[in-house]
Design a protein around this nucleic acid. Structure first.
Length: 292
DNA sequence: ACCGCACCCTGAGCGC
DNA sequence: TGCGCTCAGGGTGCGG
């Protein structure tokens, strides 16, 4: 679900609820691979402490805690991080959505997928994390402790340059689309924005990375920055699960040019958008606008 | 070193 | 209605 724009919008809107508040309690579901740090350890580490600042590294949220430790959150494919005070149809199953009229939908109550609930001293809305597929992650890092996951990440995708893409792609035989998705090259790019950027640059997703020219790298970098910034401005893409912490939907899905538009006409030339598989991920492009 | 693949899960939507 | 199938915004670890 969440790529850089959705994670950034989440960070901006959840930070006011989180930053500087003393954590009163931490409630979790049972231990599972979702918790890289076991729930009991997590509770001990967080209760009584404050998250001073919430930052973003690629698709990770990193909370800086008052004792120098850090809390890492990753939303995986279906992760949702939100205020306990909000409701949204996206927090409900389709079956529940179908039964209840929108005005009759009660505020969300924690279900079996609500893996983390953080309450604060002095009350107010809690911060809840829900993830049906459990591809997300929660990890606590003791003071001074490095994180292999964070250390692996390349430059943040918002600061991508053509020079960086050109250097990273030389002598690489994989598809340029797969290179863009490699978090060690660029942190934050996911399937939607890789497809959208390649469309914007007029480059086919299957092109061998090593054969992409310097001029094309410049165009890809510019298009990537453009779609990421625009998506943040519009609140991200709400395609199936993504909901902002305040319960609002994003609107960038309405500005997509190719992603999940298979068979629909290209907005530029009306050629039906094609869907193929590149590196085990569905990929969408216009065969006319994105020449071989 | 690089690259493709299986795998970690649940739920929606489709054809029959 | 229900079954079986495919698909889904991510990341890791393995083997060739």
């Amino acid at each position: 679900m969440p790529e850089l724009p959705e994670v950034e919008v989440t960070r901006r809107r959840i930070a006011p609820l989180l930053e500087g508040r003393v954590i009163a309690s931490v409630t979790t579901t049972a231990p599972s691979y979702f918790f890289l740090t076991p729930p009991a350890t997590l509770r001990r580490a967080l209760v009584g402490h404050r998250i001073e600042k919430l930052e973003r590294r690629g698709k990770y949220l990193v909370g800086a805690i008052d004792d120098g430790s850090r809390l890492l959150l990753h939303l995986g494919m279906t992760g949702q991080l939100f205020s306990s005070a909000v409701t949204s149809p996206r927090l409900l199953r389709a079956s529940a959505r179908a039964i209840l009229a929108p005005e009759a939908q009660p505020s969300f109550t924690p279900d079996e997928h609500t893996h983390l609930r953080i309450a604060f001293a002095g009350g107010g809305p809690e911060v809840w994390m829900r993830d049906a597929r459990k591809f997300g992650k929660v990890e606590w890092l003791a003071p001074g402790r490095a994180s292999a996951r964070l250390d692996r990440l390349g430059d943040d995708a918002l600061s991508v340059s053509g020079a960086l893409l050109f250097a990273a792609s030389r002598k690489r035989s994989l598809a340029i689309k797969s290179l863009l998705l490699d978090q060690a090259v660029l942190a934050g790019v996911g399937n939607i924005y890789a497809d959208e950027a390649l469309f914007g640059a007029g480059v086919r997703p299957t092109r061998a990375a090593g054969r992409v020219t310097r001029a094309e790298c410049d165009r890809i970098a510019a298009a990537l920055r453009r779609v990421l910034v625009r998506s943040i401005e519009t609140g991200g893409s709400s395609i199936s699960d993504y909901v902002a912490p305040d319960g609002a939907d994003g609107a960038y899905q309405d500005e997509r040019r190719v992603y999940a538009r298979t068979g629909e006409p290209c907005h530029v030339c009306a050629t039906p958008v094609k869907r193929i598989v590149v590196g085990q991920r569905s990929s969408h492009f216009c065969a006319r606008c994105q020449a071989r």
